[in-house]
């Protein structure tokens, strides 16, 4: 490798000052970077507008690439389906016959439940779907877990709305631009979801770990024993996530918490459904967060 050509400016004063100035600018750049870093640490939405401009440009590209990926991935899948179709048909017929009794019982229970709720005069909040869109890319080189949705404020997506897939909760909207939105996935280290155990309704908090797993900690003062296989769904506390969306299943117990695998695999899903925030924040006096979680 040859020695650098322009590092020795010679006797020219101008060249020497130019070199000195470039170091000053570099030092200033480091300092400004540090200031921006502190700003974005304490106020993460600070540069949403600038990021949004880039996201507006890149999201259509990602969407196109996703279509290509789908087309390629569909080829072996379709061939497999074609080959396996007879066996699958027989299996599904048997399954339908087997599950007819369960479906009947579930229908009866649902009707009874509706009747009892009407008797109790429970006020149900119906969860409205804003839009079904696709997650087209993500922060794959970063330790944070953000994804980009290819629908934005023109489609009615607003910050704070929950996003779910067919299998379970995916995350929530944090920034929107006209045609794209940034989603904070539930596996992000800064995401906290109030959940409850399906078995007994025990409340807990599901915090992301950053490695695809979720930390589940009891939200009660009493110690809460976890068992492998416990299923947690959103509790609706806090008013952001609607209740009863599957979040995670315990895969491993640690000393005073548990590790869970999320139900929704954000990379495998066809469509992500953006829903209206479960209980919109009252405009005058916002509920303090600590109370809301409880």
């Amino acid at each position: 490798m040859a020695p650098p050509r322009n590092r020795r400016p010679g006797f020219s004063r101008r060249a020497q000052y130019g070199l000195f100035l470039s170091y000053v600018v570099a030092g200033l750049g480091v300092a400004i970077g540090a200031v921006l870093l502190v700003l974005s640490t304490f106020h993460p939405a600070a540069f949403a507008a600038v990021r949004g401009v880039i996201a507006e440009l890149t999201t259509p590209v990602s969407s196109g690439l996703l279509a290509v990926r789908d087309a390629i991935a569909a080829v072996p899948e379709n061939m497999g389906h074609y080959i396996a179709v007879t066996g699958e048909n027989a299996r599904l017929r048997k399954q339908v016959a087997d599950e007819r009794a369960i479906v009947l019982r579930a229908r009866t229970l649902a009707r009874e439940n509706a009747r009892l709720r009407a008797l109790l005069k429970v006020r149900d909040v119906d969860v409205k779907i804003v839009v079904a869109a696709r997650l087209v890319s993500s922060s794959a080189s970063s330790t944070r877990r953000f994804a980009t949705l290819n629908a934005g404020s023109w489609q009615g997506v607003r910050g704070g709305q929950p996003v779910r897939g067919p299998d379970g909760l995916i995350g929530r909207v944090i920034e929107t631009t006209p045609n794209s939105a940034r989603i904070l996935l539930i596996s992000d280290p800064e995401s906290v979801v109030p959940v409850r155990r399906t078995r007994d309704g025990a409340p807990a908090l599901a915090t992301g770990r950053g490695d695809g797993l979720i930390d589940i900690r009891s939200a009660m003062s009493a110690n809460m024993p976890f068992a492998v296989g416990d299923v947690f769904v959103t509790s609706g506390a806090g008013g952001l996530y609607p209740p009863n969306v599957p979040v995670t299943r315990v895969s491993e117990r640690t000393r005073d918490a548990a590790l869970g695998r999320p139900f929704a695999n954000p990379d495998a899903l066809d469509f992500a459904i953006v829903q209206r925030a479960y209980l919109p924040e009252p405009p005058s006096s916002p509920v303090p967060k600590a109370d809301a979680v409880r």
């Binding site: 087209v136 890319s137 922060s139 695999n265 990379d267």
Partner: peptide, 8 residues
């Protein structure tokens, strides 16, 4: 990073 994968 705009490649269409949603990494965990």
């Amino acid at each position: 990073t705009i490649v269409p994968i949603v990494a965990i």
